[in-house]
Each structure stands twice: as C-alpha cells, then as structure tokens.
Design a protein around this nucleic acid. Structure first.
Lengths: 187, 187
DNA sequence: TCTGAATAGTCACTTTCTTGAGTATGATGG
DNA sequence: CCATCATACTCAAGAAAGTGACTATTCAGA
C-alpha cells in the first residue's frame, strides 16, 4: 500500500494516462519511487475502484485511445492522511554497490566499466534535472521561487534527485579511478 | 536472485551469523541493500544448500548457540560471475520524498517534523560512517589507503553511504526551512 | 523481582514485484 | 516497402519481499 501514494503524488500535478505515468516513473518520479508499467496499470485500476482517482476516456484518431486519470478529493484526503503517518526509512537497492563491495576479492575490469557507464548515466540525469528545475522556476531566482512559487513539491524532490545524481557521478568517477590505479599498481 | 549477491558480499569480510548479518543489513550494508532478518535466514539456507556458503555451529553457554557462515570458493566464483553481468539501475524508495512531492497541496506540519527527524537520523549515520571509515583506514591517510589498503570495497561503499547521508541531511534541512518559511508567509 | 531489551533464531501467510508474452495502430527512417 | 519504434495497454505465472507471531535464554535497569 505504498506504491499507491507514489502514484497519487505523481498524478497531483497533471492528468496522466497509464502510459505517461510509466514514463514519469522512469524520470522524475524515479527520484523517490520505482515501479514497472504493469504495476502502475494495476494500481490505477485499484485506485479507481477505491475512488481515489477518476479516469476519463480520450479518443484519439492518430493514436490509440487512452484514459487520463486525475486525483479525486478522496485521493487528496488519502494523501493528507498518509503525510501525517510516520515515514518508513528510505531504502536503496543497488547492484553496482554490491559489486564494488566485493572489489578487493574479484576481478575489477567489468566493475570499472560499469562505474564509468553509471557516471555517464548520472551526468545525463544531472543535465535533465538542471533544465527541468530551470523550466519549473522560470525566470525567478531559486530563493524567490522556493518562497512564493507554486509546484514547490516537485521542485524540491527534483533538487534531491539532482544532488543524488551528483553524488553518484562523483563517487563513480572516484571509485573507478581508485580501482584503475590499484590495477596498475598491482602488476 | 539478487539478495543472494548482497548476502555473499556482506559475508566476504567476516564470518557472520544470521543475526549478525541482519544487523549488518541495518547499518553499512543498508547503503546498498535492504532486507529483513527473515529474508536473510531464508537466503542463508538456500545459499548453503547451493554450496555457496558453509555454516558451522558455535556453542555458547551464556547465549543461544549460533551458526556462523562463510563464503565458499563456489560462492566467490558466483560473485565473480555476477560482477561481470550488467548491473540493473539502482532504485530508491522513499516515502518522505513522496510526501514532499505533495507539499503544496496538503498540510505541511507533519512533513516538516519528519524532515527534521530524518535530518537527525542522517546526522547520526554521518557520524557512524565517519568513524567507521577512520577505523578501517587506521592511521593512514585516505589517498594512501585507497591505493594500498585492503578491504577497499567496504571502504568505497561506506564513502557512498556517507555522501548519501550528507546529501540527505542537507536536503532535509533545506526543505524543512523552505516549508517553514512558506507557512509563515502564507498567514 | 519484574520488565524490557538483546541474542539467536523459526514458521506461516499475504502482498508485491518481476518476467515474459501478447494485442493493435500509426509514424519514422532507410 | 519493410523494419522498427512509439503509443497504449492487458494478462498470467512465478519469484521475492513483507507482516506478524512465536520459542527460548540471558543481562541490565528500576
């Protein structure tokens, strides 16, 4: 019963189809939640039967028809209730970190490659989030926007995502450099 | 089949009981993986039948007896194989971020409290990781240790954990301050 | 002396997630 | 003209994870 709130939170700003929601879960929403499209479609169906979202059919001629969902008053009340309960500690699952943990006991060639890839991926996210933040705040400066702007929630979570990816990039580059240096030292 | 590698990685440095492993998954290992004790006991049993770890009974008189597990050669080979496969992207799940995402649509009192709590929790982790890093590297300086030390894997993942918690703390404090300022502005 | 926490686990049940496949159409690129 | 990608979803099966309760002993604190 936790994906449910992530979906409601994601739908709060825009009316989205399941497909669009799935894409949102691959970029911005991925800063705080992870889910596959199948889960999202299933969760949307449950949310609708529970009356927390409503869907409306949109007929398209050049594309398959779609259903757009928005949060109902009951959905907003559910989020309100959720915000008041204690949050579970965050959790991370990262295979790459598992691999690095074993780095002094196994061959590191493949791990170094993956660290480089991950650093590049993080760099791309950094660019994405940077421009997304600019877009949200428009021409205001950050202080002003944070105090008086709307859509402050998505802005703040995006800031967290940016810092996370920055940390990721720095760490991946550092770790790759260290492992490379050890490989040449070891010969 | 992914918890499996996290368990192997955690057992690589020390021979641990299920109970000790569970505690490890609450601190250092939590930087890259999350699991409950029941899962760990079950996974250890599977790993043992698969020959990737071996357990030995240790009789204690003041405490209940325990079984200590260590990674076998087959287990190490499995980690080697795992390191060579492509890593899935990391994923995060954080209820607190979900709540912040909704911050401009709901009452923020409870969320601010939780941000403060989380910041304090992060501060405690920062201290823990800082002293853990010092303990691992002893009196060497970091550059020297990273190039020539042993147990480099745990050191690197701990560095990531430290940076993550630092980012967490900064973001929580900043966000709490922003939401507080908006509350007083709104009156 | 009683309570609660720490050690060291086990069992059963339920929910959630992942894997993999399948449907159908239109647009894009070579 | 054909292949592939993007849109927009659905279904089923199996693996993984989470919830909650339970056993048993020892130590520390009120």
């Amino acid at each position: 019963m936790a994906l449910r709130h992530a979906v409601l939170a994601a739908l709060l700003d825009d009316e989205l189809s399941g497909y669009q929601l799935a894409k949102a879960f691959n970029v911005g929403v991925a800063n705080f939640w992870h889910a596959l499209p199948q889960q999202l479609y299933a969760e949307l169906a449950r949310l609708e039967t529970d009356g927390l979202v409503t869907g409306r059919e949109v007929v398209q001629d050049t594309r398959p028809n779609k259903r757009l969902f928005r949060v109902t008053d009951a959905g907003l009340a559910e989020l309100e209730r959720f915000a008041a309960t204690a949050a579970k500690p965050s959790f991370v699952r990262d295979e790459l970190l598992v691999k690095v943990q074993t780095a002094d006991r196994i061959g590191t060639g493949a791990v170094i490659e993956q660290l480089v890839e991950r650093a590049e991926f993080a760099a791309a996210k950094i660019e994405l989030f940077t421009s997304l933040l600019e877009k949200i705040r428009g021409d205001r400066d950050e202080e002003d926007f944070l105090l008086h702007g709307t859509r402050i929630g998505p802005y703040l979570t995006c800031l967290r995502g940016l810092a996370f990816e920055q940390g990721n990039k720095d760490w991946c580059e550092r770790s790759a450099a260290v492992l490379r240096a050890r490989r040449s030292a070891e010969v």
